[in-house]
Write a protein that binds this DNA or RNA. Sequence first.
DNA 1: TCTGACTAAGTGAGTATTCGCTCGGCTAGG
DNA 2: CCTAGCCGAGCGAATACTCACTTAGTCAGA
Lengths: 197, 197
Amino acid sequence: MPADAVPPEQKAQIAHAVRQALAKHGYARLTTKKVAAESDKSEAGLYYYYDSKDEMIVAFLETSVDYLARELDEIAADGHEERLRAVCDLLLVDEDDEAARGVNIAVMELLSHAPHNETLREPLLEMERHTLDVIVDILQDGIEEGVFRDVDPEGTAAFLLSATDGYTGFALALGMEGVGDGLRDAISAYIDSLLVE
Amino acid sequence: MPADAVPPEQKAQIAHAVRQALAKHGYARLTTKKVAAESDKSEAGLYYYYDSKDEMIVAFLETSVDYLARELDEIAADGHEERLRAVCDLLLVDEDDEAARGVNIAVMELLSHAPHNETLREPLLEMERHTLDVIVDILQDGIEEGVFRDVDPEGTAAFLLSATDGYTGFALALGMEGVGDGLRDAISAYIDSLLVE
DNA sequence: TCTGACTAAGTGAGTATTCGCTCGGCTAGG
DNA sequence: CCTAGCCGAGCGAATACTCACTTAGTCAGA
């Protein structure tokens, strides 16, 4: 079945199963059998909707992109400073939230594997590109309205996104306790330094 | 053969083969056959020295830890500010250096898979812990001597290391061109903001 | 100096298992 | 009876790892 013909409910169900399996086993050890075990279908049942394992992972990524985009969109914060803080807070995954941690680390694993897997590259690129743009927009608007100093929005956004991604990539993945709090404060201080006096 | 009984020359050779194979294929697609292809040995020849694929990867990680530690140690820079800039410059892999890029992305992939693979966790933790400590030391010394403002060294170091790791994890892996330069400037500006007036 | 035992350093050909994926058939609703 | 939806069984390929064996070199003793 062509991937865009999969009924939304089925796509959501399978994406969720992929999500669970990824969090439990990681990408390198992800198998279709494990995905099936997390779903209410058999392995063959998955292949009724998707033609390959990669397509199932893409389904998961697409759902994640939508979810993240919606989350970013729904941030209720007055003013550009508060918005920026809220976005960073959202991107800095709580180390105690085991489900979110697992998923985010898995996405990081997919990211690192993207150079070797063309299929995954596009949805991942869209995910990062979109998040980056959200931050860039906040910075640009804030600069225009005199809330932030006249920094380079692209570079600053890349800095912030790198930091949040890197946090999941090394501190969360290795379970380095205590790193998160200090990092949160440092980022907060950095945002302070972006404000006009 | 116990891993610590492998002759240093053989360890170096095999680690190098793992390195090449990882850069070429990524962790998820790494096979012992591919490692053998990058070495001058056969697949079985690798197993003469190491009892499992994971042990070979650990050998690669251990040599990498040593190499990075030596690189950080050999940084010749006068003053804490210049040292900090040099360290960040070293950690921010050049996107045109294809070999370094591949290896660093592969390490990121290993990092993200660490939660699911106990064997890899320890050497990776040592790697990150050591790098973090190097930055913390520079910051502490610089604060004591009045070069840097009185920031939290742990949090600030975590911020910088997260940013450099995150850069390889998302921008390098996805080939997002142009992100690197802006990021470099943003980090430089951040270091400026750490200095006492 | 020759011989034979021993060892380090492999290799080519496997084995058992797992993997992604397919296929024939079952079943329930229309 | 048809078809959409799904499953059990299993296929071929790939994978990590093993094994029987070879080769080259060392070294003790006759």
